[in-house]
C-alpha cells in the first residue's frame, strides 16, 4: 500500500500534469506557511515554494517511496530556506524589521473570550516581540522551532527532514525555547 502522494508522483512521472497539480495543491499552503515563518518575507516565501516544486518535479524519478513524501518535500523546502537565510546574513536584522504583520489577529491568540482593548494591544505587542525574537534565532534553531510549532511533523520527522537524530532536535527545541523565554521575559 503506497501513499496518495507516492501514487500521484508516479502518475506525474508518466507525464500527468494534473497529478502534479494535486501534489502542489496538497502542499503549497503548508510550505508557504513554513517558508514565510522562516524568512518573514512574502516574496521570498513564494519563491521558495516555487523552487521547491520545481525541484520536486525535476527529481520525481529519484523519490524513494519508502520515505514519507512530506519528509522529502519539507527537506527540500527547509534547505532552500536555510540557504536563503545564510546568504542574507549581513543585512539580516534590517530585513527582519520590515517583516509584515498585517492581517494580524489578536483573537487567534487568546483561548478565552475576555478581551479588553488593553489586552489586545498587549497581545499584538507580545506578538511583535515574538516575531522579532523568532527572527533573531540562529538558522539552525529557527528551522527546528518553526517546523515544531507548525505541528505538521513529529519530532522524529523533523529529525528526518533536517537529517539529524531526534536527540539533537530535542536539544535544539529546548535551547530555542529558553532563548525565546529570555527574549520575552519582560512581557511574560
Amino acid at each position: 500500500m503506497i501513499s496518495i502522494e507516492a501514487r500521484l508522483a508516479r502518475m506525474a512521472l508518466r507525464g500527468d500534469q494534473e497529478a502534479f497539480a494535486e501534489i502542489v495543491g496538497l502542499y503549497q499552503e503548508k510550505l508557504y506557511h513554513m517558508a514565510y515563518r522562516m524568512l518573514s518575507n512574502r516574496q521570498e516565501a513564494e519563491d521558495v515554494v516555487q523552487d521547491t516544486f520545481l525541484r520536486v518535479y525535476n527529481n520525481l524519478d529519484r523519490y524513494d517511496e519508502t520515505m514519507k513524501f512530506s519528509t522529502w518535500i519539507y527537506r527540500i523546502a527547509t534547505n532552500l530556506c536555510i540557504d536563503r537565510l545564510r546568504k542574507r546574513k549581513p543585512s539580516y536584522s534590517l530585513d527582519a524589521e520590515s517583516s509584515d504583520h498585517e492581517g494580524l489577529d489578536g483573537y487567534s491568540m487568546i483561548p478565552s473570550d475576555d478581551r479588553t482593548p488593553e489586552s489586545e494591544t498587549l497581545l499584538s505587542e507580545t506578538q511583535r516581540i515574538i516575531h522579532q525574537a523568532m527572527d533573531t534565532l540562529p538558522a539552525k534553531y529557527k528551522s527546528v522551532m518553526v517546523l515544531r510549532y507548525l505541528q505538521e511533523l513529529s519530532l522524529q520527522e523533523i529529525g528526518d527532514v533536517l537529517g539529524m537524530p531526534v536527540t539533537t532536535v530535542k536539544t535544539r527545541v529546548h535551547r530555542g525555547r529558553e532563548f525565546l523565554r529570555k527574549k520575552l521575559e519582560r512581557v511574560l
Binding site: Q28, Y32, L104, Q127, L150, E185
Partner: peptide, 25 residues
C-alpha cells in the same frame, strides 16, 4: 514562563497567513 512562551510562539507561528494575490490579499 516556559508554558506561556510555548503558547505565544505556537500562536504566533500557526496564525493563519494568506497567500497573496497580485493586489488584494
Amino acid at each position: 514562563q516556559l508554558k506561556r512562551t510555548e503558547a505565544f510562539a505556537q500562536a504566533a507561528i500557526t496564525e493563519r497567513i494568506t497567500i497573496p494575490v497580485a493586489a488584494s490579499a
